[in-house]
């Protein structure tokens, strides 16, 4: 029986696979391979995209996109069929020109996650139907989840600068 790791290593080039945990598989890959890897895994039975996440490695100047897929195992199914329950795919993209492909064709529910990444990290997802603001209504110069966004400073400069009503009245006099 060929393990999933070996199968992946033979089918894809340049994967770094870490299977230190019993039921997790951490895969580092090139950004070009993500789409094909995801569709490969979907065909292999990992049909549920649990989440899309992003880490801002500011020192490296990279964003690390994280896709976590797992199998929709039903409680009554034999668990041995899937050797790993969750697969974490990590890829790094440039921080300066942050753009990537949408994975909505493969997993429909990536839509809000990518919208949120766009909003919070400023990553453009090509082919995404509505990259409109999801959570925020205000414009932030730096997308707030980036590491160089200083929240306390922002709060002091925005909400802290707004005077109280008494101060306004004083100012009139």
């Amino acid at each position: 029986m060929v393990s999933l790791k070996e199968k992946l290593l033979s089918d894809f080039e340049g994967l770094k696979i870490d299977d230190r945990e019993a039921d997790r598989l951490f895969i580092d890959t090139q950004k070009e391979a993500v789409l094909s890897l995801l569709s490969y895994l979907k065909k292999a039975g990992y049909n549920h995209l649990a989440m899309v996440s992003c880490t801002d490695w500011i020192d490296e100047g990279k964003f690390e996109l994280v896709y976590i897929v797992n199998a929709y195992l039903s409680g009554d199914q034999v668990f041995g069929k899937k050797e790993k329950k969750c697969i974490v795919i990590r890829t790094k993209i440039s921080r300066q020109s942050a753009r990537f492909m949408t994975v909505m064709e493969i997993f429909e529910n990536a839509e809000p996650y990518e919208r949120e990444m766009h909003e919070m990290f400023g990553i453009d997802f090509e082919g995404h139907p509505r990259l409109t603001p999801l959570m925020l209504e205000r414009d932030y110069k730096i997308p707030p989840f980036r590491k160089d966004f200083d929240t306390l400073n922002y709060v002091n400069n925005t909400f802290g600068k707004i005077p109280s009503i008494e101060q306004r009245k004083e100012g009139l006099k």
Binding site: H48, L49, A50, Y72, S74, G75, D76, F79, F107, E108
Partner: peptide, 24 residues
């Protein structure tokens, strides 16, 4: 439900016994 990534009782209501307490 599978396509849109539903979990929990939304999935249980369609006959899938997908429950992390059992699976993991």
């Amino acid at each position: 439900a599978l396509r849109m990534g539903a979990v929990g009782h939304t999935l249980k209501a369609t006959g899938m016994a997908y429950d992390i307490r059992k699976i993991e």
